[in-house]
Design a protein around this nucleic acid. Structure first.
Lengths: 195, 195
DNA sequence: CAACTGACAAAGTTGAGATATTGACATTTG
DNA sequence: CAAATGTCAATATCTCAACTTTGTCAGTTG
């Protein structure tokens, strides 16, 4: 019964994202996604090896679209102060995490779950973000605004040192009244270490 | 049937710790602890308002005895390099967390659970640790080894920036091969910010 | 023959009744 | 009378059978 428009991975991912947003990561079954697409659930297994692989791919795409890509814009700028640029980049990362935790709660829950299950996928996403930081740090070192050093190691240190403000394990603490002051304290110390 | 040696809070906490170590935080009931002490479970409610209060008090005592007190020894030293002292203190904190995660797994699981439930208790414990860091930082500022600044804010920033290496949410990542290298990267950046 | 179906086994989840635990308190005991 | 008991209602957890979901694959279809 081959259809004239055969099912693509992208179409499945779009459907999965919609169903996931409606039912949440815990209540969404492969069968639910198949029903939505009006295909047999077996069909989805011709495109994805397992439910876990489908969940991971949905999350990977969401992270790329909602986190990596918008931040790429900030990291790509080549003018102005590197310190200001770095702070903007970190604030944008943190603001996006807080926003999605509230406004796209089901996809954020999916991302939190995948963070615990798919270590390699998250490691690759983090590498991607650290590379963006490294570009900013390198520019700062080149212009003399930051002191010379291992830009990649520094970038990774900056990402790790701000974990509390962007890692999903801390969602509940992001509504604390002290959180912005705490970020400021960490930022000041990191900036002092860079300059 | 009042006993000649009336039950003390400490005796209950000792018993609770032993039973908790045997059965783990999920499988230990107030009745189990009462059975161990050969008293009625109702008796325990004359000493603790609730099971949650008992769990929290056990955890508080464990944190004081196993974390705060040993680190106090390192923080109290008044000679040698403040940088070396601070690094020793942080390494001791991290090493203790890793050790207990493996060697006292049930009490560590109890602590992980309480970290999610009893925000105020953990906040007080963290304040305590941050004060110890502040003592080291202040000494470093006084001796001219660290540049002058707000020692308390810096101490808090140091604790927050090293979250990934001591917060129980990251137990699973502590066995990664990169973890020590990552700590080194963060340490270098923080130290540069202090000096 | 590529794309899909649907029947199937194995694994996982759900719900309802049985059992255990929590927490309050009137009562007992030395 | 302070300390502890044991019963009770409410809440939570366990058990196990019915059901759902996952993942495979031989078979169907355009």
């Amino acid at each position: 019964m081959a259809n004239e428009t055969p099912l693509t991975k992208e179409a499945i991912l779009d459907a999965a994202e919609q169903v996931l947003r409606r039912y949440g990561p815990d209540k969404t079954s492969v069968t639910d996604i198949a029903k939505f697409l009006q295909v047999s659930h077996g069909t989805l297994y011709r495109h994805f090896a397992s439910k876990a692989a489908l969940r991971e791919t949905v999350t990977e795409r969401w992270l790329d679209k909602c986190v990596s890509e918008p931040l790429e814009g900030i990291a790509a700028a080549t003018d102005g102060s590197a310190a200001v640029q770095l702070r903007s980049w970190l604030e944008a990362l943190i603001q996006k995490k807080r926003l999605y935790a509230l406004e796209d709660a089901e996809m954020f829950a999916m991302y939190s779950a995948v963070t615990l299950e798919a270590v390699d996928l998250i490691a690759a996403h983090i590498d991607h973000l650290v590379k963006q930081i490294a570009v900013i740090v390198e520019r700062g070192m080149h212009s003399g605004e930051f002191k010379p050093g291992e830009a990649d190691a520094m970038a990774r240190a900056i990402f790790l040192a701000t974990t509390k403000f962007h890692h999903p394990a801390f969602v509940r603490e992001w509504s604390s009244k002290d959180i912005d002051q705490d970020f400021d304290a960490v930022w000041s110390l990191l900036l002092a270490g860079l300059q």
